[in-house]
């Protein structure tokens, strides 16, 4: 338990997450009542009170989302800060790999943000339409979101309590040294080529607004972009052939490029999923194309610069 107080950031990250969780639990309580006895056509007093409850739930979720976005970056910043306290760690990579809960925790936070962004877009669509077609579905989606948030909170608690400040951890240059960890024994160059080809296919399918191919492609794009960033593009950004790490991108030395990179990544993913599930119009597709392109451009900027010069 001592490790919870070793850095004020940990205490606060946990405190804020706990606070949000309490509020979301209140929202959950209201959601369960709502889902249990909501009948759209009914004109009873109960129905009116349920409609009013829906406003509370929506407000809580929207505010929590803003908090979660802020807290994700803050969380990553906390991990960066912990790196100087853990022997051996040079950046957040070592901290994340310090125990088995690190990586799932970051993935969970990503999922929460994307899911809650989708929830909000669903909610807005619902409000815009007089028939509220997504009314029940959005509250069912909230149940899933709540499960994710609860899991994330437990994982976070486990992660911080099990953090051992006496055993050395591996630093990023050791963790990502071998490209043999790449799936199907691909070389980094092959991964990059695959990454670009999937990107062009994805853009094409988004432009044509084909739902199933887009979904399949984005599922392929997700792991590929991770591997491509870590094993192929990051050395160009660091301008150091031996340095491969997805976390050092967040450092000041590289102008905090990581925050922009992961920010556009989240936005691109959000708009792509939105165009598949919520709003199947041109505008959303174009937005998703824009953010995808921005992500790829930021990522490959140094690579292109290296080739041209």
């Amino acid at each position: 338990m001592y490790s919870l107080f070793i850095s004020p950031e940990i205490t606060f990250s946990l405190f804020l997450h706990l606070l949000l969780f309490v509020l979301l639990s209140i929202a959950l309580y209201h959601t369960l009542i709502l889902l249990h006895s909501y009948k759209r056509e009914a004109t009873s007093a109960l129905q009116y009170s349920l409609e009013k409850r829906a406003y509370l739930i929506a407000t809580i979720i929207q505010l929590s989302l803003f908090a979660y976005i802020f807290l994700l970056f803050f969380f990553i910043h906390t991990l960066e800060g912990l790196a100087s306290l853990l022997p051996g760690a040079m950046c957040a990579a070592g901290v994340v790999e310090a125990n088995i809960y690190g990586l799932p925790l970051i993935l969970l936070h990503f999922c929460i943000i994307i899911l809650s962004l989708l929830w909000i877009s669903l909610h807005q669509e619902d409000l815009r339409n007089k028939k509220s077609p997504y009314f029940k579905r959005k509250f069912q989606l909230f149940l899933a979101l709540y499960m994710l948030i609860a899991t994330a909170l437990i994982t976070e608690l486990l992660f911080f309590t099990q953090l051992d400040f006496s055993t050395p951890v591996l630093c990023c240059s050791t963790l990502y040294r071998q490209s043999s960890t790449l799936p199907f024994s691909l070389t980094p160059l092959q991964v990059a080529l695959l990454f670009y080809s999937i990107y062009f296919l994805l853009i094409f399918s988004l432009y044509k607004r084909k739902r199933v191919p887009t979904l399949l492609l984005i599922l392929l794009f997700l792991p590929l972009s991770y591997y491509a960033t870590t094993y192929f593009f990051s050395p160009y950004i660091y301008e150091l052939p031996t340095h491969r790490c997805p976390f050092c991108l967040l450092h000041k030395e590289y102008y905090f490029i990581g925050y922009f990179l992961y920010g556009t990544y989240i936005l691109a993913l959000y708009y792509t999923l939105k165009s598949c599930f919520v709003k199947k119009d041109k505008n959303t597709s174009y937005k998703s194309i824009f953010f995808l392109t921005l992500f790829v451009f930021i990522l490959s900027f140094n690579f292109i610069k290296f080739i041209v010069i």
């Binding site: 606060f12 804020l16 606070l19 509020l23 505010l63 908090a67 802020f70």
Partner: peptide, 12 residues
């Protein structure tokens, strides 16, 4: 974060 987020959450 520590001030504004709880501030707004408390009044909802």
């Amino acid at each position: 974060a520590l001030f504004v987020i709880p501030f707004l959450l408390a009044i909802i």
